[in-house]
Simulated assay, not measured.
Amino acid sequence: MFRIEYSGSSYDCDPHETLLEAMLRQGVNFPFSCRKGSCHTCMHIAEKGRLPPKSQKGLSDEQVEQGCFLPCVCRPIEGLSIVPAGKGSVKRKSSTSRKETFLSPDPEMWEALDNGRVLSEILEDFYIRVFSDERLSPFFHGVTRQRVQEKQYLFMKQKFTGEKVYFGDRPRNAHHWMVISDDLFDYRESIMVESMRRHNLPEHLIERWRGLENSFREDIVKDEPWNRKIGDMEIPVSGYGEVTLEIGSLCDSCGEEIDAGTTVRYHLRLGTLYCPECMQSPAE
C-alpha cells in the first residue's frame, strides 16, 4: 500500500489499482473523463516520488520533465506527493535514473546483507509474493520457487561480491521469451523494494540495488519474444531440433532411458528431450 499526499491530506493506493481509482474510492473530487490516458483531463504533477513510465506515455518531453503524469493509467510504485497540473512548483526528474550507477563488487551491500543471510530472506519473501501474484506467476510456470531463488541468490551474490558463483544465462537470454513491459518491470521492482524494506535494508542501499536491476531493463523489457543469442548464433524461441546423443539420457516425456547413439528430438527453448517413441508428438 502506497501513501499519496494530495491537497493537504493523505490517501492510500493499492499496487493493483490506478491512482485515479484510489482517489475515487476514497471520495476525492478528482477530475477525469476517458480513464484510458487519452484525454489528459486527469493530468497531475508528482512533486515527490518516482513515476511508472506508463503513467507518462503520450506526454511531451517538457511535461515529463515537469513531472506531469496521468493518474488514470498510473499504478504507483512508491509513495507520491501530487498537485494538479499547472500548480507544480519546479521541474523535477525521476528520483532514480534507469542508468543509475551501482558498485560491483559492493562490500557495503554484502555486509548489510549479513554475508548472504539477509539476501536469502529478502529473496524468499519476494518470491513467495511473486509466485502468488496473478501478473507475475505465469512467467514461472513449471519452475519451482526454490530453484528460482537459488539462481537469483547466486546471481546477486556474484554482483555484490565479485565471486564467480553464477553460471546461468545472462538476463537477456534468461528472459528472452518473456514479453515484459516497462509497467510490469516497475511493478515487479515495487514488490522487491517492499521486500527489502521489510528486512530493514538501508534506503541508500535499496536505491543502489534498484540501480543494478535497472541496468538490465533494456535486456528484459520488450514487445515480443527475442531469440536466445549465444555468441553470434541465435536460437529460435520455439520449435524442435534433432540431435544424436553422445551419452545416454532420459526422455523428458515418458522417463525411459535413451541410449548413447540414439537420435532424439529436443525443444529449442526448453531443451527437453524426447525418445524415438515420444518424438512424434511431444508435448510443449
Rank of each mutant, 00 (worst) to 15 (best):
C42S: 09
D114Q: 13
S137V: 08
I122V: 14
R198I: 10
R50T: 04
K87W: 13
V73T: 14
V64S: 06
E78G: 12
S190M: 15
S281G: 09
L24M: 06
Y240H: 10
R217D: 03
T244A: 05
W209A: 06
D232Y: 10
V237K: 15
S120T: 04
H44V: 11
Q149K: 11
I191P: 04
C13P: 02
A174H: 03
Q66E: 09
P76D: 00
E111M: 10
L51F: 03
L20Q: 03
T41Q: 13
N227F: 03
D14L: 15
V130P: 01
L201Q: 01
S253P: 11
S10E: 12
T101I: 07
H141C: 05
S190A: 14
A174P: 00
R170K: 13
R75C: 04
I77Y: 05
S55C: 09
R145Y: 06
G27R: 04
E150H: 15
A46D: 03
I122K: 01
P202W: 00
E213F: 07
M196P: 02
S120G: 07
Y187K: 04
V130K: 01
L212K: 05
L184G: 00
M1K: 12
R147Y: 07
V221I: 12
N115D: 10
Q63T: 04
S190G: 15
D14M: 14
R35T: 01
V143F: 09
F160L: 15
R198L: 07
G255M: 11
K91V: 15
S195V: 09
K93E: 08
R75V: 00
V118K: 12
G8P: 07
S94Q: 14
R35Q: 00
I122G: 00
G231T: 09
D106C: 15
E256P: 09
S81Y: 04
P225Y: 08
D232C: 14
N200H: 15
P225L: 10
R35Y: 01
H267W: 06
H16P: 02
P15C: 06
T18V: 14
D125N: 14
S89W: 07
